[in-house]
Write a protein that binds this DNA or RNA. Structure first.
Lengths: 184, 184
DNA sequence: ACCTGAACACCGTTCAAGT
DNA sequence: ACCTGAACACCGTTCAAGT
């Protein structure tokens, strides 16, 4: 059977979700598709790029309509969407935040946060600082939470994972700092 | 020559700093010590543990005396120390933040932040939320900055790395949110 | 355009055996 | 106690050759 890039990406996400990031190897993925490892390199230049595409796809699948009008409500909306998108697949937070660190793809959420802050009347440098801080909070929280969840399901008793309430409270802390500097 | 665990850890940090995390393999480290790969397993149970010990050592080498009294000044002090400690070695931020995510070691800075917040008069749950948010900010910022620095030194032109000023401004945003909830 | 087969240059880890 | 030698079960990537 003949495949296209989308088939490879979709199957990669299936393998990720079912067996985890450490099992998502080029050889494993090839076997899953019933193909030689070298065949993958006709669809994707290398593993790093594949993971960046997977990250973008995970984010795309989590897209939701934006309803909020006020800049701070929009920030909350974008952050919650981003968090939920990452948590929807096993190791999704790890994959997306790593891809983001390497600067490949994932520009979407950053741009939407940037626009929200711009509409909040912040000077350009604070828009940048705020956007990055928000992303660090969302990524860090999601990775922690997903790690804790998997540790818990693997039998380690562990403390409570934090969850959406903790996430929102952390976000509110940062938003308070931002609000006190907003010009709108 | 016969080695002890400390020799292995010290050499691991040398390899890390000189060649980067991706070159810090058990086989490479063994070769650097003039020993068979299998010999390392007499000093360390596996690579993950070695990296956790390396992370702790990087943090320990960055320890500084705490001078500040006020809880928020102490938070700034601990975060700055943590950041500087990570940035002192190539890929240090990646190593430390990964080790922290897996819950191994690195409890030191978290505990010091926790104590500072406790002295700020925060309720227990806000102490937790605040500590985690602070760590996410510090780790995220440090990893970003180190990645950008290495990309820049590798020739990619890239935007400015952010640097200590951006870091302090992000920290101040979060601290403002915390201060507005402090009972002291 | 898409894939096979074979290879290259590696990994982490285990384990019997040596000193 | 610390190390060797050899093996096991893998990696990502390249490349000539096939259809």
């Amino acid at each position: 059977m003949r495949y296209h890039r989308n088939d490879v990406v979709n199957r990669a996400i299936e393998v990720l979700d079912e067996y985890g990031l450490e099992s998502l190897t080029m050889r494993r993925l090839a076997a899953e598709l019933g193909v030689q490892p070298s065949a993958l390199y006709h669809h994707v230049p290398n593993k790093q790029t594949l993971l960046a595409i997977v990250a973008d796809e995970i984010l795309a699948r989590g897209r939701r309509p934006q309803r909020a009008r006020a800049w701070d409500r929009r920030v909350v909306e974008v952050c919650a969407e981003l968090r939920d998108a990452m948590l929807a697949y096993r190791d999704g937070a790890e994959v997306v935040s790593t891809a983001y660190t390497f600067g490949l793809g994932a520009g979407g959420p950053a741009n939407r946060l940037r626009e929200a802050l711009r509409d909040g009347g912040f000077p350009d440098d604070l828009v940048d600082v705020g956007t990055r801080a928000l992303l660090h909070l969302v990524f860090g929280h999601a990775v922690d939470e997903q790690t804790a969840l998997q540790a818990a399901s693997a039998g380690a008793i562990d403390r409570a994972p934090g969850g959406p309430a903790d996430f929102e409270r952390a976000l509110e802390l940062l938003l308070d700092g931002l609000r006190s500097r907003s010009r709108v």
